[in-house]
């Protein structure tokens, strides 16, 4: 039934299904999925790609038991502060990072397994009025936080066993940083988008703030999802939750902009708009490589090929309710889609 309920709708005469239902996880004890992610987990010498689901007051780890079947390994119970998001830590094993808070992030915690005393543990990484956080390569975490007038942008490193090591401070811009993205192709380069719609560029090694570039007024509150450098240009993938619909671009969800970091000038490269005739707006989404996925206000999930600037699949809300969140799994794990009832469906994208 689930597969029938969640059959992707295809556009533009595509002849093969590129989004296929694989399996479903349902935590009977939870009522609402807050976030979902994948994590490498090693136990008894076996390293597997597992799924992590977060509810308001708990986070569960699921391992593959048989093809398309998942079993819960462990559930971390959190305190009174609700979980807001899972923060994927790239190229790590047995480490899960989560953000907790009410309207904003107030706490970042690490969930882990300690082989020393054979137990699942959690540890506090950071507290504060945290505006944005991103997991970086080499077991690092960058965050922006506000205290009174000042903004702090800090990088924290972890050891393999999850111990926090020295933190490094990056020079903060005047405006609040709302999202980060590592720059592919340039080691030590990091970009961020700010509350006044600027792109800022840092040198992670020295902490220098290298450049500030304005995105433009047509697309307020842009959020950076991905950045890469090619041929001397900095390409940034942005989402536009508050962009206005236009005749030329339709209702844009994602946009790729090329910046010349030397001159701060920019040009739009490609727009990825909502499917034609589809009412609603971009609510939240994620980008992985050249693929973007977003939950729309209609409760549907749309997938775009950013190189083509075209929507390639649409998951309708279905009788079980609208989709609430969408994430890309690591290592070709496909698309993870969560509903308000706490269920998470896995789809293969090919």
């Amino acid at each position: 039934n689930e597969a029938e309920q969640s059959t992707p709708v295809l556009f533009d005469g595509l002849t093969e299904e590129n989004l296929q239902f694989v399996s479903k996880l349902k935590d009977s004890s939870s009522s609402c999925a807050v976030d979902v992610s994948t994590v490498w987990w090693e136990a008894a010498g076996c390293r597997e790609l597992c799924v992590v689901t977060a509810c308001e007051n708990s986070v569960s780890l699921w391992k593959p038991l048989a093809p398309d079947h998942w079993g819960k390994v462990y559930t971390w119970q959190l305190g009174e502060i609700p979980v807001i998001q899972i923060i994927p830590l790239l190229d790590t094993c047995n480490l899960i990072c989560i953000a907790l808070g009410n309207l904003e992030i107030g706490e970042i915690r690490l969930l882990l397994y300690s082989s020393e005393n054979d137990s699942f543990k959690q540890s506090l990484v950071k507290t504060g009025n945290i505006k944005a956080v991103l997991g970086l390569k080499d077991r690092r975490l960058v965050s922006s936080s506000r205290s009174m007038q000042e903004q702090e942008v800090e990088v924290v490193s972890f050891s393999e066993t999850g111990r926090s090591k020295h933190g490094q401070t990056l020079m903060p811009p005047e405006e609040t940083v709302l999202a980060f993205a590592e720059v592919e192709g340039v080691k030590d380069a990091l970009v961020g988008t700010t509350a006044v719609n600027s792109i800022v560029v840092w040198n992670l090694k020295t902490g220098q703030l290298l450049k500030k570039m304005h995105v433009g007024y047509s697309y307020p509150a842009s959020i950076c999802h991905r950045a890469y450098s090619d041929s001397g240009l900095l390409f940034v993938v942005l989402s536009h939750p508050h962009a206005k619909e236009s005749e030329s671009c339709g209702n844009p969800a994602f946009r790729v902009i090329a910046f010349n970091p030397k001159t701060a000038r920019s040009t739009g490269v490609i727009f990825s708009s909502l499917p034609p005739g589809h009412a609603g707006r971009y609510v939240e989404g994620e980008v992985k490589d050249a693929l973007a996925a977003a939950v729309l206000s209609s409760g549907a999930i749309a997938v775009w090929d950013l190189l083509l600037g075209r929507c390639t699949a649409l998951l309708p809300p279905g009788p079980a309710g609208g989709w609430a969140l969408v994430r890309w799994g690591a290592a070709g794990a496909g698309l993870l889609a969560g509903r308000g009832d706490g269920s998470v469906c896995l789809y293969r994208y090919a």
Partner: peptide, 23 residues
């Protein structure tokens, strides 16, 4: 916009900006 509107492009933009920016 055309690429010419972006101004002179440098393949080493990161190193150049790092040497120009305040420490």
């Amino acid at each position: 916009c055309s690429d010419s509107d972006l101004g002179p492009i440098s393949l080493n933009w990161f190193e150049e900006l790092s040497s120009e920016a305040p420490p």
